[in-house]
Write a protein that binds this DNA or RNA. Sequence first.
DNA 1: CGTGTAATGTAACGTACATTACAGTCAAGG
DNA 2: CCTTGACTGTAATGTACGTTACATTACACG
Lengths: 207, 207
Amino acid sequence: MVEPISAEPADSRREDRRLAIIDAAEALFIEQGFERTSVAAIIKKSGGSLATVYDLFGNKHGLLRAVAQHRRKGAMDQIGCIACEMDSCAAMLTLYAHRLYEHLTAPRSLALIRMAITESLRDPEFGREFHREVHMTVVHELAAAFAAWVREGRAEIDDPEAAAELFLATVIGDALFRAMADVESASMNADQLDWRLAPFLSYFKLR
Amino acid sequence: MVEPISAEPADSRREDRRLAIIDAAEALFIEQGFERTSVAAIIKKSGGSLATVYDLFGNKHGLLRAVAQHRRKGAMDQIGCIACEMDSCAAMLTLYAHRLYEHLTAPRSLALIRMAITESLRDPEFGREFHREVHMTVVHELAAAFAAWVREGRAEIDDPEAAAELFLATVIGDALFRAMADVESASMNADQLDWRLAPFLSYFKLR
DNA sequence: CGTGTAATGTAACGTACATTACAGTCAAGG
DNA sequence: CCTTGACTGTAATGTACGTTACATTACACG
């Protein structure tokens, strides 16, 4: 809708069309799923023409990939990194856990993950790429922080990578499963999340 | 294929047809997903007639429900319960964790869970029912064991239900996510799973 | 051996939808 | 002002599939 002042007026038309279609597609994919939204419905929402979709994205699956990639970029930037200056790493990690949980259980993220799961059977490369980009990015961010803390003597973690995966499972594990299967279910509150983190923080001696 | 000697020959025909169709449908759903398998393909595999499917299950979605229910029964029975007599509850819990992990990451289970996730958007009741039957059954089994151990002074858990959910997340959390998105990915081995259980066992003083 | 009920095979119906073709339109640059 | 290229609108094509109808056959039971 909003047209930013762009330095290159030549490509701005094309880029506008691209973003408008991606936005409309994302909205419809979220509320109906990928298979059940027709390409015609997408352009009825975005304006423009069917042919443009095929010109820009090749086919419907290409549009899905574009939507996933576009949203991933935004989400990953929003989650941000761990390294805000705080006194204890337990506090830093807790803050990060809350941000992570909040973003990953947002309806938008859940819908995107559901799409990835659904389509990964038909297009394994898509699922693999999604997993790599989302899961691995977070795990490496965590593992790097853990390794640094161990070097500084602020934690005792023998396997930072494995600990990162365990941490991730602790934070979003069954919440993800619940949200996927039971669309209307309530999410955890802050206290519950803190409670879940306690064994982890204690065992690995975060200080 | 194998026809068991049945006490009631009257309904055995109908029941045979039912099971044959469910078996064929399950196999095709697992390898292609629900939407991509046509009812005609199921019938071509199971033998019999299209009309029988609609007579027995109402419609394609009814067949999916029947498949899910049938498989859930089998899977839940196989996982079994915790109460095998062992010296330490840590050992019991570890054994249970391994059984749980093995069953839930079997290709068949993963495929079923994927189907539940995929279809839960279109049919929320289906997803809710699936979550209730699978997740809740395991959680209550665990919570009951935890509560008993607390009463016997063999553990210190202030909230058995929450601990059960945390335990489940620890065991299958990210493995599920990985397996869903990246179909070909390798699973955890026994040592890795034990490593993950350590903080839980230690913090809640299982003995 | 007949009779009614359930299963079968096949064909047809209707629809939804991805994808393409094409002719008209608009915008920008020389 | 005119040409060029991309965008638009609409219609058409082809196909896949859920579902139903129906005529035919097999089976169980009195």
